[in-house]
Write a protein that binds this DNA or RNA. Structure first.
Lengths: 120, 120
DNA sequence: GCTTGACTTCGAGTGTGCTCGAACTGGAAC
DNA sequence: GTTCCAGTTCGAGCACACTCGAAGTCAAGC
């Protein structure tokens, strides 16, 4: 599929797709006879995984590292697993943090509700 | 307390504390006779609240809006509550998103473990 | 009374992750 | 065969949230 079709599927812009490729997050995508990118389903799968990592706050730098490891095949499986485990821990910590902050938010909302009632 | 003491307490730098003031996230802080900022406990409490909001991903723009409302006193209680409720919903959505992504992460880790065992 | 060090303001610079404009190209529709 | 559209590259620009350097001030310790 074309870059714009791929962009639509993964929920990124065509700009970003080209930029990801340039940044080494994605293998150079196949081209048609006119030099236009042709994305395969595997390309899209990879991009979807990247968007997940990105959404969880993984820096582009780490995503690139991961992409490099993936390119080197099975011998980097352990390293890739370690990278994911470390990231999972960060995501868990982040969820914990958000839940803490949510408590404060809820507390504040309660306070405001009480104050609003008292002002009637 | 001084700007550096306040910075230490809230976990921000002195640069950021001055910048927050400049950006209107914080009321102009009291000064001593030499023109140096003197932070009160209330100032610190306010800053701590701001760091929570910030950590949950609230844009500085919205924090400024909240600060402006707070300055206007009780008549903006409803608006402040609404602002917090909307933000709470975003935080909840974000937690949900992270939990989804966490599943993918765990799935990937499992796959890697399996593949590593098979390669022995 | 001099040094030191933490403060002040101001404007400029940084890092991250895109986002876009300009100039060009090539295949498809009419 | 011209128009049109979606693609191409390249470098520049942008939004956000800080971060810092420079030049100056002031109180406290020696």
């Amino acid at each position: 599929m074309t870059v714009s079709e791929a962009a639509e599927r993964v929920g990124l812009t065509t700009y970003t797709l080209r930029w990801y490729e340039q940044e080494g997050l994605v293998e150079p995508v196949d081209r048609d006879s006119a030099g236009r990118r042709r994305y395969s389903d595997q390309d899209v799968d990879w991009l979807v995984l990247l968007t997940r990592l990105r959404r969880t706050g993984m820096p582009v730098r780490d995503m690139r590292r991961y992409a490099e490891l993936a390119r080197q095949g099975d011998r980097t499986l352990g390293e890739r697993r370690a990278l994911f485990e470390a990231h999972r821990d960060r995501v868990l910590a982040r969820i914990g943090e958000l839940e803490e902050d949510l408590k404060v938010l809820n507390y504040k909302i309660d306070i405001y509700e009480k104050m609003e009632r008292e002002l009637l």
